[in-house]
Design a protein around this nucleic acid. Structure first.
Length: 674
RNA sequence: GCUCUUGUAGCUCAGGGGUAGAGCACUUCCUUGGUAAGGAAGAGGUCACGGGUUCAAAUCCCGUCAAGAGCUCCA
């Protein structure tokens, strides 16, 4: 569920976040909501070095990490006991807040959840024996000899070598000390550190088993990865498991179904979201909300088509460089027919599309080129700037099927996109405006716990477009703009896109998970590629700067995050159904209809539950539907011309006059209160 | 994409080589009930799709499609 392209990203250990910015194929999504385009000088992939931890750094390992790492050894001990042919690879602890630990193992037997009980029982024995974790230092030759005799990551010598451990030994730098950790008969090549005794690992649970490539490389064999978690004590373990359960209950896929918000249909296609009426209300409300602020901030809303000519994307640099992350091009019918008559193969067609010999269209992977063309359709004076073009623009990207999931990883999504064309001097003010908008959005939705990251260029890299002077100026502008937020912000050198610096918001949700939402990016590249210009006060032509920004990222992802944030209990203004009227019996349905008309008239989304059920059952249903307000109407209310108000969280709130309630709820909706 | 798991009624799921099951939802009837489930009856399924094995396949095998989890923060 973690990813970043369209704004929202779960921040957690993830190979995604470690990927090189220009890796083709699986990630065009590495650092922005905007598809990365190659720099004009095409310095393509810049791989990120795997950082090896020094022994000193390992000593810093927290107590919890030590417990987890040690528990991983206990797990391996148990598995080795049950299946002596096990070949172990890595067995690290994971960061606090994430799963716990895992151990990768290659063995004939397929470990399934049914085995967990047996594994845990074996682990308990090891813990009970309270074996000492003993560290001994060995020479490289000694370690190699042990590995060759199959002694490493095993309970005794074996007929087979400890194959992965031999490979891992080769990865250890010449000058680094090599150590073996022993607990009972289980010896393992391990840098540690560990807790003193296996008795310290008493609160653990084996969670799941999955497969993983050795060293994460698809070219390597796949291993079975057994996940577990461990804590200092059983109370903390129980709390953790409870939190995981909470998160599961909040899953937007589950709630999306319960509340009838969206549907993904096999017949339509993977990763293509169908917004059902209820979900559409939430989205429309959010769009209206943003729209109001766009007006206030002087944006112009535009509409652009979902496709564009391949040449447009050649100019922008998105085709064919990122063809792997796009839907395939649509060749022109005439050209395709002519080629078919010539007996042209698919491969040839693809090549001709790429080379431009055959014309075609592309489903747009981003909105920028269209907005640029709108900008270019007029001559611009410096007096016109900034030009701010906004659109809820739907874009399509080809994600690997394994990357798809719910609303947060999709193949078609609508960005709350905008592009600002301005002078260099206007960058700071415009960025401040963007930040203000993000701040308003997050504040309104009660997502006030966030941090801000300012992505700057890596001073040692040459991948960046634009001259250093411009960058200095822009980075300074972003810093100053970020400073006006009144929130702490972190400067992150090397995190800028090649085309310009950026600011990201990382939001913490109510159960402590982090998501990347909202980004603002400065772009020097596209203005250059498209040759954008305006006439300055000096009557000479100048190049504008572009700013991309999207406070939500994408509507799909943002609504997905919101569902989980609110656990489906949207604030009244966002609720698909705001008020439900519950007549106590059929006799009061007519009165209920009167109240319905009055609320409806006032623009409230209201329904009447006229089912032949007792009011208790109606309340239960309304609660399950997370309706903010339930109005009970019976004999008393008919008499006093009132309604009895029940709130989904606050319960019975007593009786109110109908117009009194109407005014109250309308005020709540108008003010978009939480 | 790759590995594993899963796919049975609108939903949540049980079952499993020989008339297809439950609860909720739905329809009808009884009931007119005051803050999280009143009662009864009924209707609803090519058991994801396509092949194969078998006297017989929802069940076993193969393939396809789709969903879920995972795919190095280090020995």
């Amino acid at each position: 569920m973690q990813a970043e392209t369209d704004g929202a990203k779960r921040i957690q250990s993830s190979r995604r976040s470690r990927e090189p910015i220009f890796s083709k194929g699986s990630t065009s999504r590495s650092c922005s909501i905007f598809v990365e385009v190659p720099p004009p000088t095409a310095t393509m992939p810049e791989t990120q070095e795997n950082q090896r931890k020094t022994l000193e750094e390992r000593d810093q390992m927290s107590e919890l990490e030590r417990i987890r790492h040690s528990t991983a050894h206990v797990l391996a001990t148990a598995i080795a006991k049950l299946w002596p042919d096990s070949q172990f690879a890595y067995g690290p602890p994971l960061l606090e807040g994430v799963h716990g630990f895992y151990y990768d193992v290659d063995l004939e037997h397929r470990i399934t959840p049914e085995d967990f009980e047996q594994i845990e029982a074996e682990m308990k024995k090891v813990v009970k024996e309270n074996q000492t974790f003993e560290r001994i230092t060995v020479s490289r030759d000694e370690a190699l000899a042990l590995a060759k005799s199959g002694r490493l990551a095993a309970l005794g010598e074996r007929d087979v070598e400890s194959v992965f451990k031999i490979d891992l030994l080769n990865d250890i730098p010449e000058d680094e000390e090599i150590s073996i950790y022993k607990n009972g008969d289980f010896w393992d090549l391990c840098a540690g550190p560990h807790v003193p005794r296996t008795g310290n690992c008493k609160a653990f649970k084996v969670l799941s088993v999955a497969s993983a490539f050795y060293k994460g490389d698809a070219a390597n064999p796949q291993l079975q990865r057994v996940y577990g978690t461990a804590f200092k004590n059983k109370t903390q373990l129980a709390e953790h498991l409870e939190q995981v359960e909470q998160a599961r209950q909040r899953d937007h896929r589950k709630i999306g179904k319960e509340l009838d918000l969206f549907h993904i249909d096999e017949a339509v296609g993977q990763g293509l979201v169908l917004w059902k009426p209820n979900g559409a209300v939430v989205r429309q409300e959010l769009q209206n909300f943003i729209g109001e602020h766009l007006d206030r901030q002087g944006y112009s809303q535009v509409f652009t088509p979902h496709i564009g000519k391949l040449d447009l994307y050649r100019t922008s640099g998105h085709f064919p460089y990122y063809a792997d992350s796009q839907f395939p091009p649509l060749p022109e019918r005439e050209a395709m027919k002519a080629l078919a008559d010539e007996g042209c193969t698919c491969g040839e067609l693809t090549n001709q599309l790429e080379s431009g010999e055959v014309a075609g269209f592309l489903l747009k992977p981003m909105n920028c080129p269209h907005h640029i063309k709108i900008f270019q359709s007029n001559h611009h004076s410096y007096r016109d700037l900034p030009v701010r073009l906004a659109e809820f623009g739907t874009v399509y990207r080809w994600e690997q099927s394994g990357e798809l999931g719910g609303m947060t990883r999709v193949r078609g999504f609508t960005q709350d996109d905008a592009h600002i064309f301005c002078t260099e001097d206007q960058v700071k003010e415009e960025v401040m405006g963007c930040l203000e908008l993000v701040k308003i959005v997050l504040g309104t939705l009660g997502m006030e716990d966030y941090r801000v990251r300012v992505g700057l260029r890596d001073p040692d890299s040459t991948k960046y477009v634009g001259d250093a002077e411009k960058w200095d100026k822009a980075e300074q502008a972003l810093r100053e703009a970020a400073a006006t937020l009144g929130t702490e912000f972190a400067e992150e050198p090397g995190e800028a896109a090649f085309y310009g610096p950026k600011i990201d918001f990382v939001v913490k949700d109510v159960i402590g998970r982090e998501w990347q939402l909202g980004t603002v990016q400065v772009d020097y590249n596209l203005p250059e590629r498209f040759g954008l210009e305006y006439i300055g006060s000096d009557n000479a032509s100048h190049r504008p700067v572009m700013i991309h920004r999207a406070p939500f990222g994408s509507m799909e992802r943002f609504v997905g995050v919101l569902i989980e944030h609110f656990a489906g209990k949207f604030p009244t203004w966002l609720s698909p159904e705001q008020v439900r009227i519950l007549p106590i019996s059929e006799k009061f349905v007519d009165v209920a209809k009167g109240v319905y008309d009055e609320l409806r008239e006032a623009g409230v989304r209201v329904t009447v539950d006229d089912a032949d059920e007792k009011v208790g059952a109606k309340i239960r249903l309304a609660q399950l539907d997370r309706i903010p307000y339930m109005l009970l109407i019976g004999a008393k209310e008919q008499e006093s011309r009132q309604v009895s108000v029940r709130h989904r969280d606050r319960g019975d709130e007593g009786a109110l006059g109908v117009s009194e309630f109407r005014d109250k709820v309308v005020a709540e909706i108008r003010s978009r209160s939480l």
